[in-house]
């Protein structure tokens, strides 16, 4: 399955969001959006990505 992860093309073995996050070792604090729509943490285990989806994982940075 091919997706865009943080803007870069990736080939994934898993489709479950929880597994993808675990595999890529994203570290908290972070939040997730699929196809530009926010996905709350409690839905990670029941959310599955599809071919062509975009996944964004964001963390805090300096802001003005």
């Amino acid at each position: 399955m091919k997706i865009l992860l943080n803007g870069e093309a990736q080939e994934l073995a898993h489709s479950e969001l929880h597994e993808i996050i675990k595999q890529h070792e994203f570290k908290p604090p972070f939040a997730v959006a699929i196809n530009n729509t926010f996905v709350p943490k409690h839905l990670y285990v029941t959310t599955y990505l599809q071919d062509g989806d975009t996944l964004d994982v964001v963390s805090p940075i300096q802001g003005g």
Binding site: N6, F26, A31, D56, V58, S59, P60, I61
Partner: peptide
Amino acid sequence: VTVSLRRQQSNL
């Protein structure tokens, strides 16, 4: 103070 969010990449 103001803060923001950006993609989590190499500067973890």
